[in-house]
Nucleic acid binder design. Sequence first.
RNA 1: GUUCCCAUCGUCUAGAGGCCUAGGACACCAGGUUUUCAUCCUGGUAACAGGGGUUCGAAUCCCCUUGGGAAUACCA
Length: 551
Amino acid sequence: MNIVRFAPSPTGNVHIGNIRTAIFNWLFARHTKGQFLLRIEDTDKERSTKEAIDRLLECMDWLGLDHDSDIFYQSSQEELHIKAAMKMLSHGNAYSSKNSDNSDKKTIVFKLPYDCSTVKNVREVGVAEFNIDPGKPVRIALDGLKFFYINEKKKSVETAASLAGFKGLKVYDENGSVVFELEKHISEIHKSDCAFSFENCSKISFIRREVFYKDLIKGELAKPLDTMKDFVILRSDSSPIFHLSNVYDDITQKVTHIIRGDDHVENTYKHLFLFWALGADIPNYGHMPMIVNHQGKPYSKRDGDAFVGDFREKGYLSDALFNYLSLLGWSPGDNREKMTRSEMVEAFSLDRVKSAPAQFDIVKLLNINGLYMAELQDDIFLSLARTEAEKQLWLDSSLDSKLFSDVAELMKSRVKLISQVADWKYFFFDESPLFSGTGGYTAELNSKAFSYDEKGLKKAFKEKDSTIGALSEFMRIFRQRSFACAACYESSIRDTEKELSLQEGKLNQPLRIVLTGTPSGADLANTMAILGKDRIINRLEKLLTIINGVF
RNA sequence: GUUCCCAUCGUCUAGAGGCCUAGGACACCAGGUUUUCAUCCUGGUAACAGGGGUUCGAAUCCCCUUGGGAAUACCA
């Protein structure tokens, strides 16, 4: 059975890149009927917080990312990680290294194995040679080889790497004679930590080896050992480093597939050796492309606008976010985009994941959100809208629910994001800064007031006097009538137009903007039916009184 | 510096040597429906980064260049 895990460190808000990793892991697990595990990597005690964990859990819950079995807290494993490091030390797979600041404290460093004969993921790729800068020393010690080589541009380039990278190393002096053979001294170096240093060298040669593995997404990947360094696994305060903890826990949790961000491929080469040293089989790896922001730069935890929680706040539907995120770097291969959870689970496979980074496009997200919005059941939409309206402070719970549901029904088809219910103000409140005579547009908006669109107003009142005249006539006719249905409102407009010999529809725009403050909205007659006779007269009167002062 | 990765419309993508005159979606533009707006419908603009090979044939395979990105921590 496949076992995957999502292993975030709870050091802040989860961002979309993170959560997409979780989504792909989840999709993979559900598709293959495997397990999706959640491991909290909370070993960084200074930066890990309970709040961050809670927020993470909320986000996962919101997105329907249910995990199998209990949450695994990495901090609970610390003792085991330390033990493992000590065991590697005693087995010769690690050594302790003095702190650079000369204190007595020591770190435990993992030693890439010089003898790779039992490491399946290492292979020889041929003989390599470097021309050495004779003015600089070649130094050989337990912690690696240091030298300066002459590159193509004839520059002296400093290099330091693990001894394991230089199988069969030979160091040549300026006459071309071999002055050192690593093979003859390697056990001595490992045993006694002795160091060699040579001046005036001309060349080094060695058998190049590389670590390799087959990435489920990116194909076969490899890295030469002579570009790798031994790495710390236990800090000088004895706390374990990410690489150790991460690998150790993956073994403990029997993880079979590690699906994570592209930024981890370099780590993988290190981890391969750790799996070997810990006596475990290596799992399958898949590295997914990063999500980049609008500038094409990678998102980081510092990108304040890409937190999952923010999308929730802004009113995005979790299904829409999930759907959109799953389409970043993956596609089902046909032309489907909007898919249900089960369709995605059904269609998902790692070999369809792209390896190029994908740019996050908020406009497309909005579009998909609108698609999901449109198919929301009326009662669900209503309660979402209601919650949103109350959240925005300008609506209290005493509001007539008949009025609210009428508005919601009328407006539903044009809402792409639930937070757009903020645009419904004119249905519920009769005040506007424009009426108050404070100069209108620049006045601070009262939270319980709707605003007028200046451009729309100017446009509708382009022929000011005749428009005001027409509206006055409309009001005269309107007052005399009673309205049983939306069609009655409609005919009151049409009749006025006839009376004034105006083209049909000519009154719509002025009337709309006077009544709602905006040039766009739902069907005018329906809008009027919701507002009702009294409020309509009220608004018309107010606006006609002040309109001369506005322009 | 070094190592590694990546490269199709503005964006997300389809594309496994001939189904490619490069398909879809978003965005954009035009037209239609709706007496407004949105929805909806129809149509349109728009891409294989560049250069070399391999091949009868290349978006697809190889090489080089260019451009992006990552890693190179006692962060995770």
